[in-house]
Nucleic acid binder design. Structure first.
Length: 817
RNA sequence: GCCUCGGUGGUGAAAUCGGUAGACACACAGGACUUAAAAUCCUGCGCCCUUACACGGCGUGCCGGUUCGACUCCGGCCCGAGGCACCA
């Protein structure tokens, strides 16, 4: 065996062995336990970044470990290939998005292979291929038939200069990123999927996901935001149409002093037409962005519309204000305002000198100061006429009932979650398979005419979507009446593609159906791994889509991902590594310098997967040094003269037994760290400790060499999921036989773990004062006596009465004086 | 602004269910080898007190609490990160 560790040659050889053996290609085997391990597929941005390397190394380690447990492991890979950056590249560099994307895929595929990930490449897919998105189009038409897809207007960011819809990311300080023109909000007609129809199930099923991090479940729960409240009407003076609002605090209804409506609300529009002085404000409201963060942090402003709303219970009139923080698209576009008991209403009322009427008082009668903030807690009603004296909870029912009796309102469950808008006014996406006909309206494309292919020859120079300008695409005939008609020119949100790719991997290559029975063999995904930044949107949409697929009879299970590992972000200079920030570290140079194993080892060692990882170039060197030491130790052992004798457990001396004990203690820990805890960093640390101990173990006797042989085999097997290339080679050197796919994870030898004595810590009043050694099976009384007898302990307890002695088995003794 | 997570030596981190704080590394310092450097190996490495040693004191963002015992649990704050529906 060579003395020098040469990663490039070793890795090339290992990868070609795996490829020749089709080592990671899997098929359904009904008699074997399956394990589907999936890492979130990448957007083909050009090159892999450290976030990818981290994500895919974690997935590969878990996959290889599970394979060594004997399971039939599916680990596929593909490309989330539609998206904005491809179109930007087209505009900036003149490259066609399809070419740009395919070039990037080719490059990144090569990089993934160079990292040695064990993917079943025969299942690879790219979402921009018509073979993939045709099924998305087909499925959308099923949803349309069921009424789960519908059209309505919704706001977009609009650049009046470029005549283009902008993504939130393309709005910088309220202006267009290209031309700096102030962005306005524009309401346009778009397609939606009724995720709110599944809100209750999506919420309830979170409890059935014990394999998901609590953090993610809580975030999704809050995002869905189920609330029980009351929806009711204010009559409006001089208008036939009432003003509908929703509140979760009907107990504060008697404290309403004004009503606020969105600038796009019909009432505001009417008011602005009647009173030209209101027009500038309504215009101003259009200049705020639609993002929630922008809405919540901007200055709250408003203007009196002149309309008067009639309080449904008192009959008093309150003014209707037009406010910039109310959006037409969310809820009813109008909110009741109770400044005394809502902080935002309070600040607005203070600013505009609107009345503040307190109707809730603390139950215990403590005074309330409304001078600098609202009183938002629940309490007892006062100044509320017939409801005086009721608690907030009682008043909720009393007021809800009263409104219902009057026919003015009813209890209603409301969700913060809004329906999923899937229309994008862009070229590089899956075309929405709809045709607009003057006589038939929006008509679905016939199944046999799918896919609606995304045309290649479009012109990127010009305003708006290139697809909408391509007459050869737009002009078609109506599938219903065969008269001339126009195609939908919007494409799908790319979350549509990423919401079902995990299922398609399990039905790879089927040209006749979206999914087949193979999906029911592999699904659900046993372990899903991806960035914490996807905790809400992607993961919620995928859960929703899964239920849609289930209800269409395409799959049998209820949830797509049994276990979820959310890896922390790879940070550089304290913030997320991303294309847009341009602070990425290129893994390729590191691989060239040290090899893939070193990069994999370092990234798994630097921090546990769920935590964020602040990148630093130092440390990679340390990982490389460790692999060199490992190589050297195996080489020294393998190259020593003479055959390695068999291990005979019955004749080992104390030192040999101690060495073996550490080997098996380490194996036990690493098995738990890798298999259950996913704390790969501590697994590596324990293996490093073992190798350090092994290098101090200089026994060259027959049994000494046998112990070392076992130890090195164990180290090789334990490290092989993390650094598979070097281990592939070391295994061959140690066993003088080629490795094959059936290599199993080793078993702990319990008999090697037996210990005669045990060290305990002795505390006095919780402070460490001594260590004692006791026989392994010592009872509490013997341990107490030994602790109290210790001279060092005596020093600290002399002259005081021992009040209590606490013995914690196998850990410590605490003496309280 | 709202939701979620995090904060431990010079640095990345460990302490798995409330029980020895700092494992394992990185960096640094000293030494060995070398004509020299690199590589490699060995030793030291939280802060303070002390000539020195100690199983002395202090110490896990800050303030307070619960407990025999708190990095860990509770309350209040400060700072950082992620998400907020058209980046993916």
């Amino acid at each position: 065996m060579e003395e020098l560790y040469q990663p490039q040659a070793i890795e090339r050889e290992a990868q070609s062995d795996w490829e020749d053996a089709r080592a990671f290609h899997v098929v359904e085997e009904s008699n074997r336990e399956k394990y589907y391990c999936l890492s979130m597929f990448p957007y083909p941005s050009g090159r892999l970044h450290m976030g990818h390397v981290r994500n895919y190394t974690i997935g590969d380690v878990i996959s290889r470990f599970q394979r060594m447990q004997g399971r039939n492991v599916l680990q596929p890979m593909g490309w989330d290939a539609f998206g904005l950056p491809a179109e930007n590249a087209a505009m900036q560099k003149g490259v066609h998005p399809a070419d740009w994307t395919h070039d990037n895929i080719a490059y990144m595929r090569k990089q993934l292979k160079r990292l040695g990930f064990g993917y079943d490449w025969e299942r690879e897919l790219a979402t921009c291929d018509a073979d993939y998105y045709r099924w998305e189009q087909w499925f959308f038409l099923r949803l349309l038939k069921k009424g789960l897809a519908y059209k309505k207007t919704a706001p977009v960011n609009w650049c009046p200069n470029d005549q283009t819809v902008l993504a939130n990311e393309q709005v910088v300080d309220g202006c267009c990123w290209r031309c700096d023109t102030p962005v306005v909000r524009k309401e346009i007609s778009q397609w939606f999927l009724k995720i709110t129809a599944y809100a209750d199930e999506l919420l309830a099923a979170l409890d059935a996901l014990p394999g998901w991090p609590e953090q993610v479940r809580v975030m999704q729960q809050n995002w869905i935001g189920r609330s029980l409240g009351v929806e009711f009407d204010f009559a409006v003076d001089g208008r036939a149409e009432p003003l509908r609002v929703y509140t979760t605090r009907p107990d504060t209804l008697m404290g309403v002093t004004y009503v606020a409506v969105a600038a796009e609300h019909p009432l505001a529009q009417t008011a602005a037409e009647a009173d030209p002085k209101l027009k500038p404000f309504v215009e101003l409201c259009r200049q705020t962005q639609s993002s929630e963060a922008a809405l919540e942090t901007m200055e709250k402003r408003g203007v009196d519309s002149g309309f008067k709303a009639i309080h449904p219970l008192t009959g008093e009139t309150v003014p209707v204000w037009i406010a910039n923080f109310v959006l037409m698209g969310y809820g009813t576009g109008a909110v009741m305002s109770v400044p005394a008991h809502d902080q935002r209403d309070y600040e607005f009322a203070k600013h505009y000198g609107l009345p503040i009427k307190q109707v809730i008082y603390p139950q215990e009668g403590s005074p309330v100061d409304l001078e600098d903030r609202a009183f938002v807690e629940k309490g007892v009603l006062l100044n509320s006429g017939e409801f005086d004296g009721l608690t907030s909870e009682q008043a909720f029912d009393a007021i809800a009932n009263k409104l219902a009796v009057l026919g003015k309102g009813q209890r209603k469950v409301n969700y913060r979650l809004r329906d999923w808008g899937v229309s994008r006014q862009r070229y590089w996406g899956a075309p929405i398979p709809i045709v607009y006909c003057e006589s038939c309206g929006a008509v679905p494309v016939a199944d046999e005419d799918l896919p609606v292919l995304l045309p290649r020859d479009v012109d990127f120079a010009g305003p708006g979507s290139p697809l909408a300008r391509l007459e050869s695409f737009v002009q078609t005939t109506c599938p219903a009446c065969a008269r001339p008609a126009r195609r939908e020119t919007d494409t799908f949100d790319t979350f549509m593609e990423s919401s079902w790719y995990y299922a398609r991997f399990a039905s790879a290559g089927n040209a006749d159906a979206m999914l087949d029975q193979r999906a029911n063999y592999w699904l659900p995904v046993d372990q899903y791994i991806g960035g914490i930044e996807h905790a809400i949107l992607h993961l919620l949409y995928a859960r929703f889509y899964h239920k849609l697929l289930r209800d269409e009879g395409l799959i049998a299970c209820d949830e797509p991902f049994t276990k979820l590992l959310t890896q922390g972000m790879v940070l550089k200079d304290g913030s997320k590594m991303s294309k847009s920030k341009g602070n990425t570290v290129d893994p390729e140079e590191l691989i060239e310098q040290y090899g893939a194993d070193t990069v994999r080892l370092f990234i798994m060692f630097a921090s546990p997967p769920e935590q964020s990882l602040e990148w630093s170039d130092s440390g990679v060197e340390g990982a490389f040094r460790f692999l060199k030491r490992l190589w050297k130790q195996v080489a020294a052992h393998a190259n020593a003269a003479g055959p390695i004798p068999a291990l005979n457990r019955t004749v080992l001396n104390a030192e040999q037994q101690a060495m073996r004990r550490q080997v098996h203690e380490t194996l036990r820990k690493v098995t738990d760290d890798v298999g259950r805890r996913f704390t790969f960093n501590t697994a590596i640390a324990a293996t490093m400790e073992l190798l350090n101990a092994l290098s101090r173990f200089e026994d060259t006797s027959d049994q000494g060499r046998a112990v070392r042989q076992e130890a090195l085999e164990m180290v090789t097997l334990m490290l092989s999921p993390i650094v598979p290339h070097i281990c592939h080679r070391l295994w061959r050197e140690l066993k003088a036989a080629p490795p094959n796919a059936t290599i199993m994870w080793p078993q702990v030898d319990e008999s090697a773990l037996v210990k005669a004595t045990r060290e305990l810590v002795v505390q006095v009043n919780g402070k460490l004062r001594a260590r004692i050694s006791v026989v392994a099976d010592a009872g509490d009384d013997a341990i107490k006596a030994a602790a109290l007898a210790d001279p060092q302990v005596q020093r600290f307890i002399e002259g005081a009465a021992v009040k209590r002695v606490i013995v914690v088995p196998n850990k410590l003794v605490n003496i309280v004086v």
